[in-house]
Every structure is written in structure tokens, then in C-alpha cells.
Write a protein that binds this DNA or RNA. Structure first.
Ligand SMILES: [Mn+2]
Ligand SMILES: [Mn+2]
Ligand SMILES: [Zn+2]
Ligand SMILES: [Zn+2]
Lengths: 145, 145
DNA sequence: TCATATAATGAAAATGGTTTTCAATTTCCG
DNA sequence: CGGAAATTGAAAACCATTTTCATTATATGA
């Protein structure tokens, strides 16, 4: 069973940010706490609202800057959806892709996609060299059915 | 061999728009001509620039409205990429996905992805019901290597 | 511990892509 | 042909994100 990205704890994220040269300020810690403890893709404003519940004088600009740091450090990733592409969620550990509930937004990572045969076939037919892929599954989670 | 969405001709697109209740105005025809004759994902401004080469008094607002009509009619689709999610390209015919050149932006559709085994496995493990998927391949096209 | 350099913050302003408004124009049906 | 109604383009509004800048907080090392 692969490690669950959502079980990674706050301390690890903070030391990772520390190692990458960030100062561990209160606002950054708050954004990190919100992002590490959530299983949904959150927009900057949602992070802002959740963050202010912990630290009321948090600024929205700081949320944007903190998300950028978390993304640079590889701790969160952007999530593209039909409804918008400004969501952020805890990054996968290794080769994983997202499965997102269309009703409540809850997300899980899954492993085991093997598209190497498909890639070979597509490369042969198209004469492209394939370097990477995006895969995302959409559905309904257990509690939403 | 599946039909190539990029070979669909302008007349078909126009009659499709006609059938869906649009008035075939000069600006809409111009945007349709640009979109049906291009193999790259184009942003609204790119469509605007290409369109004005044909019809100089075309307005950017009309480009937005025309792209919306083309999307509603199922003739174009939005393309999500790392560099932005405001690109539009001719829609696939049936079950196809995009392969995009990272260098020049040229895109091809491919068929034959079969992820049903993966979906079954993921459904069993996650207890989600999977309803759909996004798949996109990125690479380098023949002329860019 | 304390002084200091400097990274980080938050408010306000700027930016830039997209949408809305509205009067004028064009299409298409009768 | 009219004439109703959809469509257009310019201007203004909107809104998410970025930039600016004076102030504050952090880390470092004397
Ligand atoms: Mn994969
Ligand atoms: Mn597929
Ligand atoms: Zn759900
Ligand atoms: Zn190319």
C-alpha cells in the first residue's frame, strides 16, 4: 500500500519549507496547516477563509505567496477541474493521480496506472515523443452516494 | 483509422451552428474558420488576432461569445495546460484524448486508451463510483525534434 | 541575549483577462 | 421587402491575481 499524502503531518511540511530556505512565520505556518490537513482542492480564497479562522489577521496576498512556496517545495499541486483551475491540494507521493468527487470535492490519490503500452502505440502512430501525462478520474465518493 | 477532427470542414461547422440556432454572421463565420482550420490550442486573443487578419473589425468580445457558441455546439473544447487553461481547440470525435507538443503547441488526438481495469481497481479500493476521466499526453512532435 | 540584515507581511494600487451593458447593426423569417 | 430579435463592438465593470511599498517578524551570529 502506497503512503497516503494526506497523512503527512504538519511538522514534516514545516521542516521541508525550512530546508528550502523559507522563514517559518506565523502566516506561512497557518497556510501550511490548512493545506496539510485538507482532502479537498482549495482555492486561495478558501484557504484565506480557513486560515483566518486560526489567524485572523492573515492577508489574502500572503495566501498566494505561501501557496507558491508550498508548490515550489513540491508539497502542494494545482488541480484543474471543469469548474476552475485555481485549486490546490497536497501533492502526490511518487506516481499517483487524483480521483475527485464531483459532489463534495473530496479527493483521493490512486496508483497503478500503466499507460506504457498506450504511449508506445501513440508514439508510433503520431511520431511524437511522449514525455509525460495528465490523468484524473472523476466520480462520486462513498458518502455522497 | 478514426476520423481526424482537424479535417472537418468549415461548411459542416457552420451548418452545425445553424442547426443549433445561431445566426451565421460574418464575425461568427470568421471565428469558426479560424478554429476549424487550426491544430493548436488557441487563446481568445490568438483567435482575435488571426480573425482580424481576415475581418479587421472583429471585436474581442465577439470572439469570447463565438467560442462559447462553438463550445456549446460541441465543436471546440477548452484545453488545460501548465501554461494556462484558456486555450480552445477543435473537439474530439468520439472517445479521443489530446497529445500536445510542448515546443510548438501542435496537438493530435489519439484513441485506444483503455483504463477500464484501472477504473475497476480504483473503484474497489476507494469506494468511489468513477464517472469520467481526463487524460492528456505531453511530448515533442516530429518537426520539433 | 541582543543587534542587525533581510525575508516576509498586509494594505492599497495596478494589472490583465473576462463579462456586462447598451446603442447600433445585421440576420432571417414572414 | 419590412421588422422582430439576435448579434455586434466600444466602453465600462468585474474580479482574480500581482506588484508596490512601508512596516514587522525571523534568523543569525557577535
Ligand atoms: Mn500516470
Ligand atoms: Mn479515455
Ligand atoms: Zn463526495
Ligand atoms: Zn512541435
Amino acid at each position: 500500500m502506497p503512503p497516503d499524502p494526506f497523512s503527512v503531518d504538519l511538522e514534516e511540511w514545516l521542516s521541508c519549507l525550512d530546508r528550502s530556505g523559507c522563514r517559518l512565520t506565523e502566516p506561512l505556518k497557518v497556510v501550511t496547516e490548512v493545506m496539510s490537513g485538507n482532502r479537498r482542492a482549495l482555492s486561495p480564497v478558501e484557504v484565506y477563509d480557513l486560515g483566518r479562522a486560526i489567524y485572523p489577521k492573515l492577508g489574502l496576498v500572503t495566501v498566494y505567496r505561501s501557496l507558491e512556496k508550498l508548490e515550489s517545495a513540491g508539497l502542494v499541486q494545482r488541480v484543474h477541474q471543469v469548474g476552475g483551475c485555481n485549486g490546490y491540494i497536497a501533492a502526490p507521493q511518487g506516481h499517483q493521480h487524483l480521483l475527485i468527487c464531483q459532489i463534495c470535492g473530496r479527493a483521493e490519490y490512486f496508483t497503478g496506472d500503466d499507460i506504457s503500452d498506450l504511449v508506445s502505440r501513440v508514439e508510433a502512430q503520431s511520431h511524437y515523443t511522449v514525455q509525460g501525462h495528465w490523468l484524473q478520474l472523476f466520480g462520486v465518493c462513498e458518502s455522497c452516494k
